[in-house]
Design a binder for these strands. Structure first.
Length: 205
DNA sequence: CGAGTTTGACCTGCGC
DNA sequence: GCGCAGGTCAAACTCG
């Protein structure tokens, strides 16, 4: 596993009013967007400050009562945008509330972003219209059913599409280290989660 | 030796 | 009903 290394992904974060952050229950990204360029320079921008959509995020919130809402991501299939709340493979026919699905399209040289959580890979599939394999991960924390799909964009392999499904019922394992991370910020070792963590912990002004 | 990865098989949903 | 595609399982394997 090499997810702890993330040289300098060109990560841009788009959000909409329906977006709910999959990593953290108590933080709202609604007006935030991250932009990191190839040189490793990065900044925290508001959505109004940029107009270069190099990356997209899509989110849906779905419960047993509604089919969800949210913006569409161009690289997601129609099927993914219209999924319902049923859980495939429910042996006793139960319907589970899944929580949220959020998709990121991230320009990155590595496939798997370090978001601070511990993931266990459980599958790998080649998908239609994409020469690259799709990888399936589950949160390895006991009792946490969050899943993550990671695949290269079929049209532009420079982009990685990461889809989170569900909400973590626990804190990030690396949560406690955020202060050190922020204070000793290193551009060469920048990673997405480091930035997310730094924002999460920062008390609202 | 335990945790994580690989990979083929299997299951399910959906479109025709 | 059938075939395809996506998602998951689980045994074997790898690695620290």
């Amino acid at each position: 596993m090499n997810i702890s290394q993330n040289p300098s992904p060109n990560f841009t974060f788009f959000s909409d009013e329906n977006f709910i952050n999959p990593f953290m229950d108590n933080f709202d990204f609604s007006n935030l967007m991250f932009d990191v360029d190839e040189a490793g320079n990065n900044g925290l921008l508001t959505q109004e400050e940029t107009s270069s959509p190099t990356s997209i995020v899509s989110s849906e919130t779905f419960t047993g009562e509604s089919g969800g809402s949210g913006s569409a991501i161009a690289t997601l299939s129609k099927k993914e945008l219209t999924f319902d709340c049923k859980t495939r493979g429910s042996k006793d026919g139960e319907t589970k509330e899944m929580g949220h699905r959020v998709a990121f399209r991230t320009r990155s040289k590595i496939d798997v972003m370090d978001d601070g959580y511990k993931w266990r890979k459980y599958g790998k599939k080649s998908v239609k219209n994409n020469t690259n394999k799709r990888n399936y991960y589950k949160c390895s924390s006991e009792g946490c059913m969050v899943k993550k799909r990671v695949e290269r964009d079929g049209e532009d392999a420079a982009y990685v599409i990461t889809t989170y499904e569900g909400v973590h019922n626990h804190e990030s394992p690396s949560h406690v280290y955020y202060n050190d991370m922020v204070l000793s910020y290193d551009h060469d070792n920048w990673n997405q989660h480091s930035l997310l963590r730094s924002i999460k912990i920062s008390p609202p002004s």
